[in-house]
Design a binder for these strands. Structure first.
Lengths: 217, 217
DNA sequence: TGATTTTTGTACCATATCGTAGGAAAATCG
DNA sequence: CGATTTTCCTACGATATGGTACAAAAATCA
């Protein structure tokens, strides 16, 4: 099904489309959609503009390709990190850790979340991008919510816990990381807020004198 | 001190600098820094490019002026909303309400936070903008932290509450609102998460069977 | 080998963009 | 009123930008 379609007819491509798309994404990631020229992308991918157009369409279409690619990366990382076979606290911790690794990747320093760092700006005047962004945000909300609901079902959270609301909080932590990393805060500084955030969402890990208020203790 | 400097020498200005700056900000707010041309701003302000240059400098300087203007607006709104004479819960509620009013203002629909919606994108390649953004974020963190510390001091929060950490959570709620509003979510949807967020930060408002875990109850 | 197919890469075009020069316009001052 | 000052505004210029035309290149197929 996904075989290489071995030996096509004409002149072979001088580039790997997937690699090129990844590099194009990197350029957008740094400079944003409007701040990136096709010449910039051409330079970083090695493909010239006509080839870019042939492979991915015009600038806007190319950008949408990178958005989808990023969503796929995020989706994979999220579903892997949200380990259903481990405690909620650990699962969330893994999500944040993976997210930070992504946000702090890049040659020109931390770039934060690709969607929030680039698509958010375009969202007011570009309904297409806005919808994609909104979908991506909701997808994360839903993943968190399902995971939290699962935890509650298994007694990790009190019965009256509100998975939908807690999921929004969990997402908010992700959002603040996306912003702050791109704004130049250190990874260490962000990591310091994971623990208190998890305490609020999952209940205190280290029961103090006030006692743990959750089942899991 | 701040008088009109009555009757200057030459031809009078055909525009009010402050009004013009506000309109310039509105243009940047919609399209982002890179996505805005000086002609766009010229059209919305009524000032032509040479006048814009004379009044505010080049495009980048103009943008920095709008950033500072926005910071001033946000600072004023924040310090007014953080009512020290009312309960913490009410103060935070007012902050979120004011923020949402700002984020949902605008003719072309919701625009979110000006800084997060426009400066965030530029932050990777523009250290100047990045620093301004980081400063603004920290200013909000600090305001939250001071307010929360004050609340703890007055018995609204348990002694072992962590004002710095709670402030980061409070900021995170603001950040998620900034993102989601620009991404097209409804104000109602966002307002729905205020309550649960305040419950986590300040303690449950409606003591359920699990009992209120805070002094204030 | 020659026809066919597909991609590459240079060159080109129309437009957008930012900044600025330089004269006209509109006020005050003497 | 004329000189001076300040701002306005048209016009210009250099560069950037997105997209495309078209010939050369590199593969397969018969």
């Amino acid at each position: 099904m996904v075989q290489k379609a071995a030996a096509k007819r004409g002149r072979p491509r001088a580039y790997d489309p997937d690699t090129a798309l990844g590099r194009a994404m990197a350029v957008f990631w740094d400079a944003g959609y409007a701040g990136t020229s096709l010449d910039d992308i051409s330079a970083r991918t090695g493909m010239n503009r006509p080839s870019l157009y042939g492979a991915f369409g015009d600038k806007h279409a190319l950008y949408r390709h990178t958005l989808e690619r990023y969503r796929a990366i995020g989706r994979a990382a999220m579903s892997e990190a949200l380990a259903y076979d481990k405690p909620l606290r650990e699962a969330l911790n893994r999500v944040y850790d993976k997210a930070l690794s992504l946000y702090f990747s890049g040659d020109s320093g931390a770039r934060g979340c690709f969607l929030i760092g680039t698509a958010l700006t375009e969202s007011v005047l570009d309904p297409d991008v806005r919808t994609t962004l909104a979908d991506a945000l909701h997808e994360i909300d839903d993943a968190f919510e399902a995971r939290i609901r699962f935890a509650r079902l298994h007694g990790e959270l009190p019965h009256n816990a509100n998975p939908a609301a807690l999921a929004k909080i969990a997402s908010a932590i992700l959002h603040t990381f996306a912003i702050r990393s791109r704004a130049g805060e250190s990874r260490k500084a962000l990591e310091a807020t994971i623990r208190p955030a998890l305490d609020l969402i999952c209940g205190s890990s280290k029961p103090s004198s006030r006692a743990s208020r959750r089942t899991g203790g």
